[in-house]
Amino acid sequence: SLSVDNKKFWATVESSEHSFEVPIYAETLDEALELAEWQYVPAGFEVTRVRPCVAP
């Protein structure tokens, strides 16, 4: 099958004044980091952490 098993990760994104967490959907932690950097670094943010979303 061609289905992709995307998992939810939380990326911590920082600017000079703010820090916030955004959801990233990817297959692996490395891919989540790449996606977060691709989305947020060009906008002037720094991705400081990516972690798996742990269900309660």
Rank of each mutant, 00 (worst) to 15 (best):
P56S: 11
V47K: 01
N6P: 12
H18F: 15
A11S: 01
T28L: 02
E21F: 05
W38I: 14
C53A: 14
F45Q: 02
E14P: 00
N6C: 15
V22S: 02
E14G: 05
A11R: 00
C53M: 06
Y40H: 04
D5F: 10
F9S: 00
Y25F: 11
D5N: 15
E31T: 04
I24L: 04
A43T: 05
A55K: 09
S3M: 11
H18A: 12
I24W: 01
E31G: 06
Y25R: 03
A11I: 12
S16A: 12
Q39K: 10
S1V: 09
G44M: 00
E21P: 01
P56W: 07
E14I: 14
A55R: 09
L33I: 13
A36P: 04
V50H: 01
T12C: 08
A43W: 14
L29K: 04
Y25I: 06
K8N: 04
E27Q: 14
W10E: 01
F45D: 02
L33Q: 09
I24G: 00
T48A: 04
V22Y: 04
E27W: 07
P42L: 09
Y25P: 02
E21H: 06
L35V: 06
Y40W: 15
A43F: 13
Q39L: 15
S3H: 13
Q39W: 14
A26T: 02
W10V: 07
L29Y: 08
W38D: 13
F9H: 02
V50F: 03
V54P: 11
L33H: 06
E14D: 04
S19I: 10
E46Q: 09
K7R: 09
L33K: 14
L33A: 06
P23K: 05
L35R: 08
L35S: 04
P23H: 08
E37Y: 13
A36L: 06
S3N: 11
S3C: 15
T28C: 06
E37D: 04
P23G: 06
Y40V: 05
L35H: 05
F45K: 03
V47M: 00
S16P: 13
E17D: 11
W10D: 00
R49D: 12
L33F: 13
V13Y: 04
A32L: 03
E21Y: 06
Q39V: 13
S15W: 07
C53D: 15
W38A: 15
W38Q: 15
E21W: 06
V13P: 00
E14W: 07
A55E: 12
Q39Y: 15
F9N: 01
K7V: 07
L29I: 11
Y25N: 03
P52K: 07
E37I: 14
T28G: 05
A32E: 00
L2G: 13
V4E: 08
W38R: 15
R51E: 06
S3F: 08
A43P: 06
S16I: 10
I24R: 01
C53T: 06
A43G: 07
L35Q: 08
V47R: 00
H18S: 09
P52A: 11
E27I: 07
A55L: 11
E21C: 07
E46A: 07
R51M: 07
S3A: 12
R51H: 06
G44N: 02
E46L: 08
H18T: 13
E17V: 08
F9W: 13
V50K: 00
F9Y: 10
R49E: 11
Y25G: 02
S1I: 10
I24Q: 01
W38F: 13
